[in-house]
Nucleic acid binder design. Structure first.
Lengths: 335, 335
DNA sequence: CTGAAAGCGCTTACAG
DNA sequence: CTGAAAGCGCTTACAG
């Protein structure tokens, strides 16, 4: 039923190895033979069997992509990472095996030990990510998006959240703000080890302290109506604060409505800065000055480095930790 | 380097076939032999090579999932389909090869002809979807989410958008509304063949006509600030309309802000009904009476049927077209 | 420039 | 209850 390389060889009157070499270009083939093979392939509609090729070459040309969806969390930002990873993989000739299994470590062992993938991308890596021991154990190249606590032994890519916070505080300081409120992600993200929460928070708090700026840090919420309640409560608690730093996707998405209901105008009554990706901002129509979360660049760099690890000799240098420098986009939401 | 079934066999002092049968359970094995094999597997850490198994059995245990992201469209709703498909696949023992390649037909030929997948799920299928000829050509089982124009020769799952519209009009009619405004998806979705646009629209228009209700149908926008401008324009144009039917994700997400800016209260000044999934509504904090878009159920049913096609004999009956009946959730946004 | 043969790691008739 | 052998569809030394 399926056309094999043997069918093509027979049809073209050559050996199977010649067809294989014609396909790979790994040795010289006479023009006439190449033409006959090309014609046979066109007539029969041949595509090499990926499993057989993988078995022989020990390369699947597939990357594993591990995502996790946490209940009670704001999912729409996830897509900003998945798409660039998928597109970058295709650009490098790889397909994506997407795994959403909540049992991350087991899923990693399964796809790695059965050799379904040549390498693995982990999204949303946490401080003590339970998937990291599995990654170390399976001996496949891997790239992480998100900063783990210790040395992971694999390549790590993340936004420089500390620097992002400092840039935003600087931006407000330059405009004369002396009292700020900071809304971080929900506290359960800290408990899960989402280090971007405290890296951003510490960056903001330290920078504010250096300037003698008062800053009131809070953990926000991820769902309505708690978001509205909490934002209102902390604005009430700090009536003299002139600026709000929002490091919380669900909160920034809800903020326009909340402020409108309070009759608060941005930037006249309150300055607002945040951290989100350009696409996310567009989808939610967010008009705030913000640091780009750089999901696309992180995804592309992680894939490029992973492919390098796969294709170069097993130990192509020590593992990398790369912080993408933040970029601030001024959308006029500060005064 | 990698542990093979031969290593396990040697370690356990049995033949490779015995190990294989112990794993598959396809023939009786003495307790003692089974124990020795189990121990060997545990000590050596054996997982069968997926490529070799696929080559021999002609089954990859992988499903292809094809998504497309259209520029100038509202992406967050896509995740509501991807996740249930992925989870349902895992429940059936399958992994997901996710393909976001904008060249859909080529991507289908590639993953199907190289036998990377046992079946294919197509998301967001349109009236004259260019991917359908490729699906027909490759001779792999497939399941579509979204209704194609003609007979696809494969199983089709979609929400009954006509019925959804009729339910919403009924709901408004029962409450005495006599003049409605309908916001459909952007017109370019119609041009692309998104039949859910006109199925919903026709359902609403016909139902309204039957009741003698005036209805003003419009195509909406997918991005700000056009959304705000267009909603304001059509509310201005129909000051006597008492209810709004929104069949447009980007518009419904923006609606709370827009109405607040106009000083319009729901449902006192205006009744609003819509169509979206429960998760989507939660993420965007949407308080509107709506028909559930049933993304989860569609994904699960598509996968279940696809697996049936794969595992049962090649022709397990004629191809199906299944419309999931809409369910209305009253959130009190009508009066 | 081309071919015959071995082998990647499995599964499964065939044989006992 | 178990084993030896064939074969899935490729790639790549080896040989000419």
């Amino acid at each position: 039923m399926m056309t094999t390389i043997g069918d093509v060889a027979r049809h073209a009157g050559v050996s199977r190895s010649t067809v294989s070499y014609a396909l790979s270009g790994k040795r010289a083939i006479s023009d006439e033979t190449r033409d006959r093979i090309g014609q046979a392939i066109a007539e029969l509609g041949f595509t090499p069997n990926a499993g057989a090729r993988a078995l022989k070459t020990a390369q699947t040309m597939v990357l594993g992509l591990l995502l996790q969806f946490h209940a009670d969390e704001f999912a729409p930002a996830m897509l900003q990472y998945v798409l660039p990873v998928s597109e970058a993989a295709r650009d490098h000739g790889y397909d994506i095996l997407m795994v959403t299994d909540p049992h991350g470590p087991e899923a990693i062992r399964r796809i790695a030990n059965s050799d379904m993938v040549d390498g693995i991308v982990l999204l949303d890596v946490t401080h003590a990510d339970p998937r990291l021991p599995a990654i170390a154990e399976v001996k496949k190249p891997a790239a992480l998006i998100g900063l783990p606590g210790g040395a992971a032994g694999v390549d790590v890519f993340d936004l420089d959240f500390g620097e992002a916070a400092r840039m935003l505080v600087d931006h407000l300081q330059e405009r004369g703000h002396r009292e700020l409120v900071l809304v971080s992600p929900p506290y359960h993200v800290v408990e899960r080890g989402g280090s971007y929460v405290w890296r951003f928070r510490e960056g903001a708090v330290e920078r504010a302290a250096r300037y003698g700026i008062q800053i009131h840090p809070y953990y926000g919420e991820s769902r309505q109506p708690a978001i509205t309640t909490s934002v209102n409560a902390l604005l009430d608690a700090h009536p003299k604060a002139t600026a709000l730093i929002v490091h919380n996707d669900a909160t920034i998405a809800a903020l326009p409505s909340i402020l409108r209901d309070r009759g608060v105008r941005v930037p006249d009554d309150l300055s607002v800065v945040s951290l989100y990706s350009r696409d996310f901002g567009e989808e939610f129509s967010l008009p705030f000055t913000a640091v780009e979360s750089a999901a696309g660049e992180l995804g592309r760099r992680a894939v490029a480095q992973l492919v390098r690890r796969i294709t170069k000799s097993p130990d192509a240098g020590p593992s990398l930790v790369r912080f993408v420098p933040p970029v601030l986009t001024d959308r006029g939401s500060t005064r």
